[in-house]
Amino acid sequence: MGFKLLSKLLVYLTASIMAIASPLAFSVDSSGEYPTVSEIPVGEVRLYQIADGVWSHIATQSFDGAVYPSNGLIVRDGDELLLIDTAWGAKNTAALLAEIEKQIGLPVTRAVSTHFHDDRVGGVDVLRAAGVATYASPSTRRLAEVEGNEIPTHSLEGLSSSGDAVRFGPVELFYPGAAHSTDNLIVYVPSASVLYGGCAIYELSRTSAGNVADADLAEWPTSIERIQQHYPEAQFVIPGHGLPGGLDLLKHTTNVVKAHTNRSVVE
């Protein structure tokens, strides 16, 4: 069995187990497998329904001669939608809004960016022009300005110390501490036991640490421990890039980060 097929099978099995364990909360999309990078042309966006009122959005972007996937989250909030992270750029984010209108038909009224990198804030200006209120932590807003990236308009308070959590509509926002970046936030959907790890969490097929220019490698494993301790009931975990899975993604990420750190020390 090929690795790609095995990865998709694991996603399907995880979703099936969740649907059985929580039949009222989960209505997993039966329309197909989780979209992969090879299936999404740059400039297009796919939506994948995880649970009743919960979707991931998947886009792709060219970077350094390669094409990478990027995940975000959409959560229903009454007759409105909360968006977590842009679709990595203005063109993708405009396509995301169009796809949401086509498939869901509810307005996106608020959006949260989970850290300051372009795959999370690139497209904020498109959201703002569409009347979406954009939010991020003060740290993310400051770092985005320093980096020359787009800056969300509103500040999220109460997320300055490791372990801080605040309720934001249908989700809980959690600051686990520094990891992929010093400002990275985690998003949890309690009604569906869905954990969105953003770039602080890796997919299972990833074996290298990737972009760690703004990471705190020493603190990252401790931050992941905080996530595990705060959300032990999480059933569906979405990484910032690639295929979702279960809580095993947290341990896998820790292993990859520690291996990278150990290699760096040896070198």
Rank of each mutant, 00 (worst) to 15 (best):
G169T: 03
E99A: 14
R128L: 09
T60S: 14
G240M: 05
S139A: 14
A200K: 03
S160D: 14
G89S: 05
S139R: 12
Q235R: 11
D85W: 00
V28G: 10
V126W: 08
A95F: 15
L250T: 03
D125V: 06
E157P: 11
D29M: 11
D214I: 06
A111L: 04
G89C: 00
K258T: 12
V212W: 06
V75W: 02
G131V: 05
V126E: 08
R142T: 13
A111N: 05
D77V: 03
K4R: 06
A133Y: 12
H57G: 02
A234G: 04
Y175H: 07
L127Q: 01
E172Y: 04
A87V: 02
K91S: 15
A209L: 08
A59Y: 05
P69G: 15
L159E: 01
H180W: 00
G89K: 01
V194L: 09
T93V: 00
I224L: 08
I84R: 00
R128A: 14
T134Q: 00
D216T: 08
T60Y: 07
K258S: 14
P41T: 10
A144W: 03
Y175F: 11
V212L: 08
R263N: 15
A144R: 09
G105R: 11
D125E: 13
I84C: 00
E39K: 12
G210V: 05
N211P: 09
L96S: 00
A259Y: 08
I238L: 07
V112T: 03
L82S: 01
L143R: 10
E80C: 06
G169C: 06
R142E: 14
G78K: 08
G177W: 04
A179L: 00
E99N: 12
V266N: 13
H260N: 10
I17D: 06
V171T: 05
G78Y: 07
A218S: 12
D164F: 06
V194F: 00
T153I: 11
L143P: 04
G197W: 03
G122R: 08
A87M: 00
V112W: 03
V67P: 15
S38T: 10
E219D: 08
G89F: 00
D64L: 10
A192Y: 07
Q61E: 06
H154D: 08
N71G: 02
I50Y: 04
V146W: 13
S162W: 09
L204I: 13
I238A: 02
A90T: 13
G122C: 07
R128M: 14
E219L: 08
K258F: 08
L47M: 09
G242A: 04
Q61W: 06
L96M: 07
R46F: 08
P107A: 10
L83Y: 00
D183N: 07
P152Y: 01
S162N: 11
L247T: 14
Q235G: 08
V124P: 03
Q61H: 09
S31N: 10
T86F: 00
D164L: 07
E233P: 05
T140L: 04
L185I: 11
